[in-house]
Simulated assay, not measured.
Amino acid sequence: MMTNLFSVFDPSSSIFNLSLNWLSTFMGLLIIPSTYWLMPSRWFILWNFILMTLHKEFKILLGSKSHSGSTFIFISLFSMILLNNFMGLFPYIFTSTSHLIFTLTMALPLWLCFMIYGWINHTNHMFTHLVPQGTPTILMPFMVCIETISNIIRPGTLAVRLTANMIAGHLLLTLLGNTGPLINNMILMMLLISQIMLLILESAVAIIQSYVFAVLSTLYSSEINYDNK
């Protein structure tokens, strides 16, 4: 029974006090046929083309002197978020990316790794990055505070952006779906059309938000190695 509107996002299904809803995070790996990895199909060629395009774009963002293979970290991040976003569009499947505990688990360790690596290896650059070029002397203390705060809240903004976008679309679909039994057939047809359009929009949001998360993570990483370019 749904006690309130947001209870649809509550991971409450469990056996022996172990939550089962989080299994949807890995469910996509189970439905991939084994021949997908052995025989290149059209889907495999299309997915490989997408990954290579992302690899080239992330390589440009990271710079020519970035560590070899570093783009695959962000490609894997993109793939994982995209898979979970799309799994959440199916009925009765738990959307793990609509929870801060999941998105923060991805954003916070990434940001911490960037910060630790930057402050240890490029300390002078990290200090100069706190004061933008051309800042008047009198405003430098304020700019340091502003840049420090904006840097600290980065993992939070990454996580909240993804979570809020996933919750907003699913919440709207739930609100419209609950009004179905209470309306006549004419309005019901309009409701079904609007639901289909919203589902298409949510599919686009699922792709865009996974791309935004990966690109912003790449940009945060490229700022640390800026002086190596």
Rank of each mutant, 00 (worst) to 15 (best):
M186P: 03
I75L: 13
F78K: 00
L175T: 08
I207A: 09
L176I: 13
R42V: 07
S64Q: 09
L176H: 03
F49V: 11
E202I: 09
M197K: 12
I146H: 02
R154L: 02
G118K: 02
M143D: 06
F58P: 01
P136R: 06
H122D: 10
L176G: 11
Y220G: 07
I183K: 00
L158P: 00
L171Y: 03
G134Y: 03
S7M: 09
G118I: 09
E223T: 13
F49N: 15
L198G: 12
P109L: 06
I200Q: 08
F142C: 05
I15P: 00
V212K: 08
V205R: 03
H170L: 12
L104D: 04
S68T: 15
L176F: 12
W111N: 01
S13F: 13
P11G: 07
W22Y: 14
N121Q: 07
N84C: 14
Q133L: 08
F26K: 00
S217M: 05
S150E: 07
P132F: 04
L30T: 00
P132L: 02
T71A: 10
A164K: 06
T25R: 05
G177Q: 02
F72T: 09
L112W: 00
L77I: 15
G69I: 08
L192S: 11
M140C: 15
L61W: 02
F49H: 14
Q133A: 14
S34D: 07
F44G: 03
L51F: 07
T128S: 10
M106Y: 04
I15W: 06
L110K: 00
F102E: 08
D227V: 15
S68E: 11
F49T: 10
P40Q: 09
I196F: 15
N165H: 12
P141D: 08
L182E: 07
P40K: 11
F74I: 07
S79Y: 01
M27P: 00
L219H: 08
L216Y: 11
S210Q: 09
S221M: 05
M189H: 04
T163A: 12
T105P: 08
F72H: 14
I224P: 04
F6G: 14
I153E: 09
L46G: 04
I224H: 01
D10G: 01
S194R: 01
P132S: 04
I120E: 05
P136M: 02
N184Q: 07
Q209I: 10
K229H: 15
V160M: 11
M80I: 13
A107L: 01
N17D: 07
I81C: 12
I116D: 13
P40N: 06
M190A: 10
M166R: 13
L110I: 08
F127G: 05
H170E: 15
E57P: 05
L198I: 07
F6N: 13
N165Q: 09
R161H: 07
C113D: 11
S150A: 14
I200A: 10
Y220H: 09
N228C: 15
I152Y: 06
